[in-house]
Write a protein that binds this DNA or RNA. Structure first.
Lengths: 284, 284
DNA sequence: CCGCGTTACGTAGTGCGTAACCATT
DNA sequence: AATGGTTACGCACTACGTAACGCGG
């Protein structure tokens, strides 16, 4: 189970093509074929169906292992390299859209003030911090009050809770429910919703947290632009669950608190970190 | 960063000797030397001091990455192998000492009733479940009421909370404090304690949870035998924090509740699991 | 000078590319 | 017939063992 083979496997599985993977990896198609054959022989399982190319059940299983392994390998190399020669240049900070301002504030004065801000996707940020593409990450999301943010294995990263804020249902000022003091989330299962999983609370999460079906998307908002989403909600295309502060700042929107706040907006600081370090890690 | 090299490195670091590592790995000493040299060349950092052999700072850092990586590689292979050909034979269940009975109860009727119980250390159990040395693990420990059990990265394992129970301070029936209805943990910092980290709440954890210094060990109890520990406590050598049920069952001991229960006894079921599987994993 | 890690060198094995091959659409 | 994965083959590189070497205690 050479990492090279694993990497080839993940690329083939992602691109669903041996030749495309070969191109991406700088191998010949033949080499890729040999990689997959070697892996399959080693594990004694067929990992990919061919024609069309698609991972088998075992292959899907392996993907779940391969990605964290490759991430950790990359992270280890990045970490040791940084340790050997700390890079100069501006501090590279990544942030998800809702917290870019907070990220800028937080990074103020870091490394003589020079700063590069990278706006990223929620899922990408941990990977980029782990592999030293970024020096620091600020990530937001929605979770039950004492839970960490959802998401798969983040890799060897230190997570510090930076802040927690109540969430509200964002409604156009003219909406019939806009005058209410609080709303039960479950009662809104049949309302019109905007699903903006990169900015607001993803509808899948609302379904999970209420246990209710419903929360069907009237509009799917795939971008990460906050202002755009607020405009869509303000125009009455549907509701969204957002942090209270964001909604308050918009003139055409009203944020109504949840009757049972089973969801909060949470901000986490991600730092590259030794995977295991001794328990008594020194403060930073 | 070939896993073979990483493995060699971890063994050398553990044994603090190239030749001993070579013996354990079935290589020649020369090969081990070459492995380390290759790793150091690849990463551009010295990983080990020689004479005496000891990991450098970078080496220690790397160890923190290497172990999870190797664990995940082993787990992946074990998982795919099991998936290809589920092993016959008795169900192999591992359990930490305080929960062996619970483990037996839980495994009843599993795989036509045949059952092998392995009593393990708290730290070892996750590794053995991940690598398919065990089919199931039941692990206990102490934690703040809503926290998971402490411990490093467990590897690709599914954790299910099995139960939570209050803890008590175990005292000999004749102890002056035995009549109290509740005790403040911090007030006991200067008492005599038995540190039995494999059975009771480790004193380091009591220190962490109270923020107090103290909790010095009058006796260090390194075994994992519960009855033995209870006897030591009953004989008046020192106090220990234990689950209420265990103390209640012993005639010579009294368990006194904590005034501020910042610590509970928690039991977790560990199952081998696809590291990542799609969120909507089918129930099992 | 002995124990132990390093370096030199030869060989067996393997990883990759080229190219011929074959299967599915 | 074309697209795309497999197999055959050869070369170059690597990984290991043997053995000579050197450094520190």
């Amino acid at each position: 189970m050479d990492p090279h083979l694993l990497r080839t496997f993940t690329v083939v599985a992602r691109l669903r093509s041996f030749s495309a993977a070969a191109a991406e990896l700088g191998y010949t198609q033949s080499a890729v074929s040999q990689h997959i054959a070697a892996l399959e022989a080693d594990l004694g399982v067929r990992l990919l169906d061919r024609r069309p190319v698609a991972p088998t059940a075992a292959g899907i299983r392996l993907l779940g292992y391969a990605e964290p392994i490759l991430l950790r390998l990359a992270a280890a190399r990045a970490d040791l390299t940084r340790l050997a020669a700390p890079r100069p240049g501006p501090l590279r900070v990544g942030a998800t859209p809702l917290v870019v301002a907070a990220a800028a504030r937080l990074a103020e004065g870091g490394r003589d003030g020079a700063l590069t801000l990278h706006v990223t996707t929620r899922a990408d940020l941990p990977r980029r911090v782990a592999t030293d593409e970024l020096d620091l990450g600020l990530r937001d999301g929605f979770a039950a009050p004492n839970d960490p943010l959802p998401g798969a294995d983040l890799g060897p990263i230190r997570v510090e809770v930076q802040g927690v804020e109540p969430v509200v249902v964002a409604l156009p000022r003219t909406h019939p429910l806009a005058a209410r003091r609080a709303l039960g989330l479950a009662d809104l299962a049949l309302a019109r919703w905007v699903d903006a999983p990169e900015v607001a609370a993803p509808l899948t999460q609302l379904r999970a947290v209420t246990g209710a079906d419903g929360f069907r998307a009237a509009v799917r908002y795939l971008g990460a632009d906050v202002a755009g989403l607020l405009a869509v909600v303000a125009a009455g295309h549907g509701l969204a669950v957002l942090p209270a502060g964001v909604v308050r700042a918009h003139a055409d929107l009203v944020g109504v608190a949840l009757a049972e706040p089973r969801l909060v907006h949470r901000v986490e600081l991600l730092r590259p970190a030794p995977a295991d370090g001794p328990p008594g890690g020194s403060g930073g």
